[in-house]
Write a protein that binds this DNA or RNA. Structure first.
Lengths: 282, 282
DNA sequence: ATATAATGTTTGAAATAATGAAATAACATT
DNA sequence: AATGTTATTTCATTATTTCAAACATTATAT
């Protein structure tokens, strides 16, 4: 099952010294579970309906295997078949998340403030949470008509080239920050290197001014400012951001107006006590 | 693996005539995938952090097995360990849903109308989608402070004893409705029977007046009205509901004021053409 | 402190479940 | 009708899971 190992990126023992050239599969994780969930991961905003064969092609499995996995997921209610017989994610998948969303009551408490911020900059305002090598949106307010993309719960973005990502990184302390950066570097060597300077500058700015700004680093036509909020009791790192389309942005507005205001708002949110803000190194 | 079969409720061939009393396991679904996902399903608003042993107990597996499944889910990023070493759902799980949310652009288009409805009744307004034997909330607007529960994306409720559920059922046609009711009856025999009359009355009301009302049938202290919206192009059945705490409800308000207004709003939403409304039987 | 009871993880061998090739069936599109 | 799709079924092979036992690691109680 060499293919499988490479695909899933499982950590395995070094084969170098083994008697036969046979690879040792990692018995401590379940490959079937991985494959099943990888089926769900195949779907995206642009690939909303997928057939068996297409999924098999992407995952490097053969059709019968995928057929069985999909059948299982349909049985569980997380996939459905549309009129054309293709598979689509099913609404029950949302139910899996409800426990997590209801564990973030601060998402509601911040709605008002977020709305005010969105109005203030005539753009939108989002909350993001650190997750592996990405941030994940957990709340978004203000989605004007004609908005270039759909920021919604669950959308992910890069830590190393987005305002929200930088704000999140700025909260990590020495050892923690080191290891996160090492992870990012390992996962996206070239991409990370290309943004390394901007990243460290933004982290510095966050720590000094309480916010940082991104000019189209993530979404080419969006300008955004972000501020760190802190870590929740149960261990999630949270930041807040405001964004608007580039063509509507007045030069310097984010640096001199919106940024400081966002930082103020973040500061007063921190006063609520929901978020623990780390003591930052001088 | 007799235990497994019973737990997962897999359909299997009748063993009656088999030579040995050995059960035939169903090769067409993947039991490992089922178990892995069942681990995720263990979490709820009230059980946000679970240990290995607790999960094992609930699923009827032994600890090593659960340890491996959890390790796999952590590897995938869908579980995380908190400060105490317990497992919690990880934010990456939200990312799995993003493709589905972004496939429902009408969730945004309806925000304004929903806000108006919520203001009008001084309560909240939600969109629900049919999913198996339940509805799933896909959007909620208006969460006043002190609200008795947290209606949010992903929350599920019963089809047969809630306004939203009844409104959804009212859209199903003959054969489709029959089979859905049969499913409900099979899954919750007693509970269904207890609400059967209310259910059919509400379906009738929906078809006649365009809305139905529930007085605490789902959440004891909530009164709600709901209207069917129709079926989306990709096959989801959607309904809209407004709810407020019972103690704030004036007698008859939902029947004579809010209900008809909701029905009007639903009617004008349907005009937008996003939802296909079935031709109802006279 | 020490004992006791839980929990989490690692083994290895036995049992089982997953796999993929081949065949079949169902469907669209020529 | 014929071709190229795609989805499903079957079955023998193989690899993965499972479980019990032992160990390590916490908590909790005495």
């Amino acid at each position: 099952m060499t293919k499988n190992k490479e695909r899933t990126g499982l950590k395995e023992h070094d084969d170098a010294g083994l008697p036969r050239s046979e690879a040792v599969t990692d018995l401590s994780v379940s490959s079937t579970l991985i494959r099943g969930i990888e089926v769900l991961q195949c779907f995206s905003s642009t690939d909303q309906a997928l057939g068996n064969a297409e999924i098999a092609r992407r995952l490097g499995l053969n059709r019968p295997t995928v057929s069985r996995l999909c059948k299982t997921l349909v049985h569980l209610g997380y996939l459905r078949r549309d009129a054309k017989g293709a598979f689509r994610l099913a609404p029950k998948l949302l139910a899996l998340n409800y426990p997590m969303l209801s564990a973030m009551p601060w998402r509601y408490d911040l709605l008002r403030t977020m709305g005010e911020l969105a109005d203030m900059c005539d753009g939108n305002c989002s909350l993001g949470v650190l997750s592996g090598d990405s941030f994940v949106h957990v709340q978004t307010v203000g989605i004007p008509p004609g908005w270039p993309h759909i920021p919604d719960i669950g959308q992910t973005g890069p830590l190393y080239r987005s305002a929200l990502g930088w704000a999140l990184l700025s909260m990590l302390q020495g050892e923690e920050l080191e290891s996160k950066i090492a992870d990012l570097r390992a996962l996206h060597p070239d991409e990370y290197e290309a943004s390394a300077e901007k990243t460290s500058a933004a982290i510095t700015q966050c720590r000094r001014d309480g916010f940082c700004v991104s000019y189209g680093d993530w979404r080419p036509n969006l300008v955004a400012a972000a501020s760190p909020l802190g870590r929740t009791e149960d261990g999630l790192d949270v930041a807040i951001a405001c964004a608007l389309p580039r063509y509507r942005t007045v030069a310097g507005y984010f640096e001199t107006d919106m940024g400081p205001r966002l930082a103020d708002a973040a500061e007063s949110i921190r006063m609520s006590g929901v978020f623990v803000f780390p003591k930052l190194p001088k």
